[in-house]
Every structure is written in C-alpha cells, then in structure tokens.
C-alpha cells in the first residue's frame, strides 16, 4: 500500500488521541452547563489551578511562601516532603471540592435567579481571580509534573506495525494513558448520573430547577457537587496537559481547544463532548495533513472552529445537545 495511506492512518489515530485530550477539557464545561446553565469561562483556569496545586502538594511547596517570607522575614519555601502521586492527587481533589464549596458559597449563592449573562460574567471574574491566586500561592515558574505516566513513542505499536506494513506508526504513550483514563472517567460519570441518588438529583436539576426544588432536591448541594466534579475533571485534564508541557500559566489556554468541541458536541451531553472531541481531533489533524502544506500550515486552530461552525449550521444545538423548543 502507498506510504501516503499509512501516513494518513497514523494522522487519524493521533487525531483521535488528541481529540480525547480536548474532550477531557470540554467535559468540565458540560457538567456545569448541564446542571446550572452556567457557561463556565474559568474551566481552563480550573485545570491550571488544579495542576499547580497538585505539583505544589507533591513537592511540598509552601503556598503563599513569598507573602509569608516578605511579611515575617523568614526563608521558608518547602515543607521538605515529596508525596506519592496518588496521595497528592487525592489531596488535590479535596482542594478542588473545597474550592467548589467556596465558589458556590461566596459567588453563585448570591446570584441565584440572575440572567445567564451575569453568571457567565461571574465566571470570567472567577477565572482571573483563580489565575492570580494560583500565581500568588505557587509562583509563576514552569513546574515539572511527573505522576508516573509514560511518555514517548509506544515501541510495541511501532515495531508491530513496522513488521506488518513496513511503516512503524507513532502513537504517544501519554495519549494512550489519556484515552484509557478518559474512558474510565466518562464511564464513572455516566454510572454516577444514572444509578446514584445524587446523580439522579443532578439530572433532575438539569431538567428543571424549580421542579427539582419542589421535590426537596437541594440546589446548593447539587451545584457544589457539580463544581466539585468539574474540578476533578479539570484536575485530570491538568495532569495530562501538565505532563505534556509542564505546569505553566498557558495551560489555562487549553480551554480554547474545548470550545469547538462544545459547539460541535453540544453543551449538555457527556457523550457529545467525547464524540465532538474525536471529530475535532481527527478533522483538524487530517486537514493539516492534506491541505495544510498548500496553505502554509498552522491550520489546526482555525479549522477546528470552521468545522464546528459547519456543524452548527445544520444542528445549532450541537450533535448531541437538546433541542430547545419554546412555545409562546
């Protein structure tokens, strides 16, 4: 078979893997939008904050060290421990739950009943606040994140495909891990939503706030739970992207990769986020491979949005989004 074909297959496989990484970010948006109707602008910053906190806890970094040292004249920077990755991840998840409580307690509890645009603006404020808080807590330098996930070409796939086709396919071990973790995460989220009391309450709130309230569902609790789940999803996304590029402030920009996924998959569907991510990942990689060289390359960023717009023309609610019918 021609070499071009194998290259194309390799591009598609890598596009699928990249799509999973995009979907991980998009999932956080979906969870919050589905339960509260809030488009959470701060989801990318949540991933950054989670990753910063994880590295800080793992490396025993003293939060707010600069402030403490400046105020007390001390020279304390580290606690002197290095925690195992799993324990650090659990502790970071607890921090994200605490953050969810704080967000609900101090911001959204005061904005119940406000217009969606007001809630959206509040998340913009939250994004800038969290970015600044992360900077003050953990510093702005680039941090290495190593939770034991393998990186680099998968030698087995390379060797086997070379033996079969005479061309060794490149698949990144980190992408394989991300795919497995994302699959597990989505399965758990779906099981949680379908088979647990809290999950059913979350779906009830998503369907109709007032009806859910009338049958005794606590909106406050559900929103804290949803923000916590979004925080944990952000932590997973932060781990994947942080392992790949180091934990740094540009990590918050991964949200830009999630927007076309949401436009395509719909803002209210968990499977939509996954399928949308895969379509965007494959679409942008194939376009770059086939058309990119003719137009000077670097097409991925804008093509993802073009692809999403094309889908929007035919399905404004996205592939899996709920069609909104308002009767007057």
């Amino acid at each position: 078979m021609p070499e071009q074909f194998f290259w194309g297959v390799e591009v598609v496989l890598n596009g699928l893997m990249a799509g999973v990484l995009y979907a991980l970010v998009a999932l956080g948006f979906v969870l919050i939008f589905k339960a509260s109707g809030i488009f959470n602008y701060s989801q990318g910053v949540l991933a950054l904050f989670a990753a910063l906190t994880l590295v800080g806890i793992m490396d025993g970094q003293v939060p707010f060290a600069h402030l403490i040292n400046a105020a007390l004249g001390t020279e304390i920077h580290h606690f002197g421990w290095h925690l195992p990755a799993l324990l650090a991840i659990l502790l970071t998840a607890l921090v994200m739950v605490a953050l969810a409580w704080a967000v609900q307690r101090f911001i959204f509890r005061h904005l119940v009943g406000q217009e969606p645009i007001i809630l959206f603006m509040a998340t913009i404020g939250l994004a800038y606040f969290l970015e600044g808080l992360g900077d003050i807590m953990w510093g702005a330098d680039i941090k290495n994140l190593d939770v034991g996930l393998p990186q680099g070409i998968n030698a087995t796939i390379d060797e086997v495909t070379y033996e079969w086709f005479g061309y060794g396919f490149f698949i990144d071990n980190l992408d394989i891990s991300a795919t497995l973790i994302a699959a597990a995460l989505v399965t758990l989220l779906i099981l949680f939503a379908q088979y647990t009391k809290q999950g059913r309450a979350m779906r009830a709130v998503a369907d109709d706030h007032q009806a859910a309230l009338s049958v005794g569902v606590s909106l406050n609790f559900i929103w804290i739970m949803v923000w916590s789940l979004a925080g944990v999803v952000a932590l997973v996304a932060g781990i994947m992207w942080g392992t790949k590029m180091g934990v740094q402030f540009s990590l918050s920009l991964i949200a830009l990769k999630a927007l076309p996924v949401l436009m395509l998959g719909g803002f209210t569907s968990i499977p939509g986020a996954i399928v949308g991510g895969l379509i965007i990942g494959v679409g942008e990689k194939l376009f770059e491979f086939l058309i990119g060289p003719m137009v000077g390359g670097a097409t991925e960023n804008w093509f993802a949005y073009v692809l999403a717009l094309v889908f929007l023309v035919f399905r404004p609610q996205g592939l899996f989004g709920e069609k909104i019918i308002e009767r007057v």
Partner: peptide, 17 residues
C-alpha cells in the same frame, strides 16, 4: 518551514511531519 500556531500547546501534526 513548518508553522506552529500560538500558543503551541499541540504540535502533533508538526512533529509527525
């Protein structure tokens, strides 16, 4: 030449090339 769009977090296509 191979271009990388800002900010450059995703470069799989470029490095496959």
């Amino acid at each position: 030449t191979i271009a990388v769009d800002h900010p450059g977090q995703e470069q799989k296509s470029q490095w496959l090339q």
